[in-house]
């Protein structure tokens, strides 16, 4: 067994620097690497390019990095659930690249899988395709999109073991598996970190080969963005 476990978030984030590019798993506030984000806030490194489907809310998720003006550029598919984001975007302090959600997932997966680029139909004929190579296959037009190139990938999983094997839960899975092994260093935080042998190899979603560092998150808020319920009667 190659041991990937590190003591805590401080050790897990060693090497992060100003002006780096990071990937963050999560959809809305579900399945975001809360502990890594909290540590990046403490380290207060700046000039970051962040690849994440969303940008958090004002007081949670990537919104916390925005509050401290740590982010130079966001690459996302859907943003604007937070006022500070909007203010920085409109004032020009923050550069925002909006891309289709499936393209975001596939650009991560391509980096993970060793593909430099791929053709997708998404965005053809729209401003998303402007300046990009297009090509016809079987009578339909496609846009060439490139794999991401990031320094660190921050992942949140449900359970993991010391070998870096990961299991996700519910829709907190989202972009997390696609971003594993897609950056130079993949850091996974888990709710439960188990000794090797405790996870059934049949149930592993992401093998430890895609993970460089794993730690048990000290605390998970697991906030709900839109609480919708039916009354009990």
């Amino acid at each position: 067994m190659i041991n990937k476990s590190v003591a805590d978030v401080i050790e897990a984030l060693q090497g992060v620097k100003d002006n780096m590019t990071f990937m963050f798993g999560g959809f809305g506030l579900s399945g975001i690497p809360e502990n890594a984000i909290a540590e990046l806030v403490k380290l207060n490194i700046k000039g970051l390019t962040c690849i994440s489907n969303n940008a958090g809310v004002d007081d949670f998720g990537l919104g916390l990095l925005l509050q401290q003006k740590q982010i130079k550029k966001m690459i996302s598919s859907y943003v604007g659930e937070n006022d500070e984001f909007e203010r920085q975007m409109l004032s020009g302090e923050l550069d925002v690249e909006l891309i289709p959600q499936g393209t975001l997932a596939e650009r991560a997966r391509a980096a993970q899988a060793g593909f430099p680029a791929f053709y997708t139909p998404a965005g053809y004929g729209t401003e998303v395709a402007e300046g990009k190579e297009t090509r016809e296959f079987n009578g339909k037009m496609y846009v060439l999109e490139h794999a991401f190139d990031a320094d660190f990938g921050f992942i949140k999983a449900w359970k993991g073991d010391e070998a870096g094997n990961l299991i996700f839960r519910g829709t907190a899975r989202n972009f997390n598996p696609n971003m594993c092994g897609a950056a130079k260093i993949t850091v996974a935080e888990v709710e439960e970190l188990l000794p090797v042998g405790e996870l059934d190899p049949n149930q592993i979603h992401i093998p430890g080969i895609f993970v460089q560092r794993i730690f048990k998150g000290a605390h998970f808020d697991k906030r709900i963005e839109q609480r919708t319920v039916r009354p009990k009667n």
Binding site: G28, L29, R169, G170, T171, E225, Q226, R227, V229, R230
Partner: peptide
């Protein structure tokens, strides 16, 4: 949607609703 009290932060739709 879940019954009140049974909502789960890990189980949402694309609108981020439980």
């Amino acid at each position: 949607f879940p019954l009140e009290g049974e909502e789960d932060a890990d189980i949402i739709n694309a609108g981020k609703q439980t």
